[in-house]
Amino acid sequence: MTARTASLWQIRQPSVIPGFGLALGVTLSWLTLIILIPLSGLVWRSSALGWATFWELATDQRTVNALRISFGTAFLAALINVFFGVVLAWVLVRYRFPGKRVIDAMVDLPFALPTAVAGIALTTLYAPNGWIGSLLTPLGIKIAFTPLGIVFALVFVGLPFVVRTVQPIMEEIDKEVEEAAATLGANRLQTIRRVLLPGLAPAVLTGFALAFARGVGEYGSVIFIAGNLPYVSEIAPLLIVIRLEEFAYPAATAIAAVMLVISFAMLLIINMIQAWSRRRYGYGA
């Protein structure tokens, strides 16, 4: 047995820095206690239901509708955020205008503002008698207390995810690439569409995925503005809370398990797309 064989079995590479055992020990025990045991409890409880019961609970019409509403509105909100988020990041990176610093700082507001506060504030604005809602009511547009209200709340919540993933990559773009494109005869729109946007694609996709994942699970900001009508504007996290209040623990567990599985699957797919596009376009998020 030589040193070579030993190194194959070594968990870590040798280092003069002390404290590996203590640091990893604290990390793993805390992680296990706070995250892994509680989460595996959820997995265990849903597998204990048995496949037939689980399937029955997961395909209950109210559950299916709630999941569809959660994933659908989160998808739509993430798309809206991709558009406005990229415009906002572009404006912040490329242009100079008064108040730019403040706007840049404001982008993080949804990270810092508690979701319940965001929820009641957005409802005040977009309710039929609200600041903006009252302007839209004569036009026959209703935002609060409809699925559209959910989308609005999720746009608020997801915005910083897109801006903050795209912005640093935009700052790294080499101006020479644009000059080269212009020299070769591309007009500005062609340069943006064919040269700049493809390079930003991985970052945009990451931002989309983060905003989407956050939107699917969002609760606080949505419940005030949604109207919470079963089958119509009731999101999956709210249905979990309702089932818990009814002491229908198996139903709550089943909905949670379905949400977790779909969210992880989507994040996995998006990670794969991202890896692919990073290989293709060189620089990634």
């Binding site: 990390t27 992680l31 995250i35 892994l36 045991i37 509680p38 989460l39 409890g41 959820l42 409880r45 994942a213 699917v216 699970g217 969002e218 609760y219 606080g220 999956a236 996290p237 709210l238 979990i240 809370v241 818990l244 623990y249 709550a252 567990t253 949670a256 949400m259 977790l260 969210s263 992880f264 994040l267």
Partner: peptide, 24 residues
């Protein structure tokens, strides 16, 4: 893998984060 596990709570709905403790 450890880094991914640390980020896990970000991809879990807050309601589910509460639910796991109710189940426990």
């Amino acid at each position: 893998f450890l880094t991914t596990l640390i980020d896990l709570p970000f991809s879990v709905s807050p309601v589910i984060s509460g639910l796991v403790f109710v189940l426990l």
